[in-house]
Write a protein that binds this DNA or RNA. Sequence first.
DNA 1: CCAGATACCGCAACCGGTTGCAAAAAGTAT
DNA 2: ATACTTTTTGCAACCGGTTGCGGTATCTGG
Lengths: 323, 323
Amino acid sequence: MAVTIRDVAEASGVHVSTVSRAFSAPHLVNPVTRTRVLAVAEDLGYRPNRAARALTTGRTHNIGLIVADIANPFFPPLIKAAQAQARLRDYHVFVADTDEDPQVEEELIQTLTKQVDGVLLCSPRLTNKTIERLREEVPFVVVNRRVKGMPTVLMDVGRGVRLAVEHLTGLGHRRLALVTGPSGSWTSKEMQAAAAAMSEADVTFLGPNAPTELGGLAAVTDVIASGATGVLAYNDLVAIGLIEGLAERGVDVPGEISVIGVDDIVPGRLSRPKLTTIAMPTAAAGRIAVDLLLGSVDSEAAGGVTVLETSLIVRDSTGEANS
Amino acid sequence: MAVTIRDVAEASGVHVSTVSRAFSAPHLVNPVTRTRVLAVAEDLGYRPNRAARALTTGRTHNIGLIVADIANPFFPPLIKAAQAQARLRDYHVFVADTDEDPQVEEELIQTLTKQVDGVLLCSPRLTNKTIERLREEVPFVVVNRRVKGMPTVLMDVGRGVRLAVEHLTGLGHRRLALVTGPSGSWTSKEMQAAAAAMSEADVTFLGPNAPTELGGLAAVTDVIASGATGVLAYNDLVAIGLIEGLAERGVDVPGEISVIGVDDIVPGRLSRPKLTTIAMPTAAAGRIAVDLLLGSVDSEAAGGVTVLETSLIVRDSTGEANS
DNA sequence: CCAGATACCGCAACCGGTTGCAAAAAGTAT
DNA sequence: ATACTTTTTGCAACCGGTTGCGGTATCTGG
């Protein structure tokens, strides 16, 4: 049915190996034969069969991208960037969604493992031990989590947290709260560590919470009880949920409580009040992670740790402490 | 390196063909040999090589899923459902994002075509002619668009629109507006057709608009100018943008203008005011579309058209007309 | 006890590329 | 013109499964 390399070989009067090389090892074939072969191939509409190629080379030209939840607006920009970058390198991306479940995450990696050349693990909830074990089976690049000896792309939330806390204390807030994320989240731990390290601030930790609007909604009672007037949420979704919940209780943001999110997702830019947030360079992370992964696939060189900058974007959900 | 079918054959004292059949044609091998082979395989950690299998069978066991924009909350539930369903059938899903660009959409299909057994096309912006041409190369299932002779999954927006219009007129709104979507959108046309068919309502059409919050924001001026007090937006994102924009102009929703969205995405459920919306059965659509696709891949039977129900969910963004 | 059907299994070709090796062709130096 | 390189191409094995065909063992009925 489909046109194969042998059809092209026959039509252009050379051996199949020459056709093969015309595509995958141009320097090994005479330029004039090469152009002729390519022309014939184009003419016949030849497209190399990836499965066949994968069989001999051991490269599927696919990569896996594992995220906790596609529905979280944090991920789509990262996914898009990763896909675009992969496509540039003639790779395709399997996106898989773990529903925030470490169990599912591990299974997914297992089944993906044999059909991809490498896996991008975004904010994994797995234990380090598990990740290191899985690592034997397929190259990884980890995003938003530090795992010993693994190529990693990190976003410097610590810095963002420091900026956020300074912003809040600068506005006169004395009692702060950090609405933390899921218990397995590296980012959440980083945020706690960064906040705890700031001796000038009095911050209580509230959590763990689901990294969604519902998680924010659920944290409202604790936030109010904490007496904090400045709140840093695990992410924008949580912040939005929190603001909603506070509004329902008649608490004004930023009038009574200031709220800061993390991620700078689009809904946060358009919500009311517009969300003050720590911007994460998600697209850059996706792009770089793919480069790192494909780099470590081709050469055995395991990349190090890349840290991307974050920044604080001040909008309308934070204001002066009133007292 | 990896353990192959031959390793298993040797270790269990049978021929490779028997091992192969133990997996893919159980009824052709003696139950006791089969269990033994399976045990040995399990023991050795054997995993069949999909590329090799694909080479002989011509089935990659991958499907493509093409959406306009992963970042649109409408899609994730559909994607998740499709992936889950595909996984049940031992298939994997390539998700691709066209950035709302028909050009990109076509290229994507072209490159995907050779490495998947079928493609799910969600709300395609391509012309019918192009789709029918591409159809020669790979089986399709189209979601949210009617293309002659193609297996299709539709959501009955028409009904949703009728319910929405009735809801608005029932609240006393006389002048209505429909904020339409992108020009290539089948859903948008359906909505217009359904609205136009309701002779009792006076509805003006505003658009086309980008199917995002920004699109809604941009439509604010027109909406105000139209004098409508009841507005149906192309989707929830547009509705949210619209409400934001109206708020900025000091127009209260639902006090002065009632707004209805489409899709019932999570942000709409949590926004203020909570969005009245037409709920779309996206997860069901994803599931069914995959079944249809895999059905038409296995047997040549081209499925027909499946229509899924929609419903109106009344929340807080609609209210009595004040006059 | 035997012909014929049935169940199970092995053989080997094949899918469509890739690649090490060697032969042939072309180029260079002597 | 000869011997030696270098470039270009062909040959054939191989990747890891699948599957049509045929052989052997077991079972059936008469």
